[in-house]
Design a protein around this nucleic acid. Sequence first.
DNA 1: TCTAAACCTTGCATAGTCTGCAATTTTTGC
DNA 2: GCAAAAATTGCAGACTATGCAAGGTTTAGA
Lengths: 200, 200
Amino acid sequence: MTLSLREKRRQETGLQIQKATLELAMKSGLDNVTTDEIAAKSGVSTRTFFNYYPNKEAAAIGHPPRFTQAQMDALRVGSGPLAADLKQFLDIHIAALSEREDIVRMVGNVLRSNDKARGILEGLLSAERGVLAEALCARVNDRQTATSLANNVTSAIRAAILLWRQEEGMTLGSALDVVWSGLLDAALLLSSTQNNEAKS
Amino acid sequence: MTLSLREKRRQETGLQIQKATLELAMKSGLDNVTTDEIAAKSGVSTRTFFNYYPNKEAAAIGHPPRFTQAQMDALRVGSGPLAADLKQFLDIHIAALSEREDIVRMVGNVLRSNDKARGILEGLLSAERGVLAEALCARVNDRQTATSLANNVTSAIRAAILLWRQEEGMTLGSALDVVWSGLLDAALLLSSTQNNEAKS
DNA sequence: TCTAAACCTTGCATAGTCTGCAATTTTTGC
DNA sequence: GCAAAAATTGCAGACTATGCAAGGTTTAGA
């Protein structure tokens, strides 16, 4: 995990550009900001901007935290009840997001009105979801079940962010708790009439 | 539901443009197709193309079937067990999609590689999900629970299409059955250790 | 049937996005 | 220090998307 000077700079400049993008987007909306303005504010040429991100939407999204290997492994070999392990998985991820609250909020703003940004993030999330489903598959031994669980996990993250953005004095963590309890209730409702048609 | 000549033409031209877009996209990938080509193939001017859709990705997506009022009402006042009502809701929607299999398949292709298209569809789905959550809220009396259920429903649609695209001899309906059974299993797993921390 | 209003289509001009290329500068490893 | 590797930059050019204004078509009502 040691970074060469080059790698470190690259990372810093990338972050710099993301912040410039988001700040400008907060003022006028991303659609009304030009790549020229972003580049100028970031202190690089327009051409260089495109060396860092393929488009301004990607610059706004930046590089969200990914699920870590440790998180995955904990799930695969998990000892506790599945629900508890998943909740812990989510807690870890939400903690990572909490360290960048400002960025999360601004990115959320962009996502409201920009289709392309939404698509980019959705693509990243979808990849993460796939990896998570793969890991869960080792635990529950059924691909569709794993997929559904992975769906619920990533949806919970999105829902928690949404709730946190809209309720004033809430932390991301407490928003997750609320979402999670709703998710468990939903699961209970769905499984209460179990043997009706579970395996068609 | 009677359409004036004007409305009918508009609808036909819109569909025409979507099909032209998708066919060209199948050949070379949407990114390698210009709006000029699409317009030419659709028999309208480039300028008119942009009167129908704001960009080529939107043209590729077109106007997917929405949840109908009847579907919603059935859920709101539903009599059976919730899971059964939701499954029926899904069956209806999947039936609507089945009538456009060719388009569904081509759109799916575009979504693979085009972020903007993904974002546009995600936006539409997200709106539908919100409406559905609203309806479910009347039934389960808790917003987060309703949101989670709505998430599972729209995810199931996506998962069913994905499964159908990847397994050769499958119908959309049978793909949904497989997905649904996985979803119920997941719900069961999540709710099996119920009283641990459901309400934190 | 005729007509004015509403609506559509189109071409043109223009701002903005994004890529390839080649010249220049910076960083790296030795 | 120095040559190789990598990053930055300007420029040219294809493509996307919108405003505007000039015409053409449809609609509704007298």
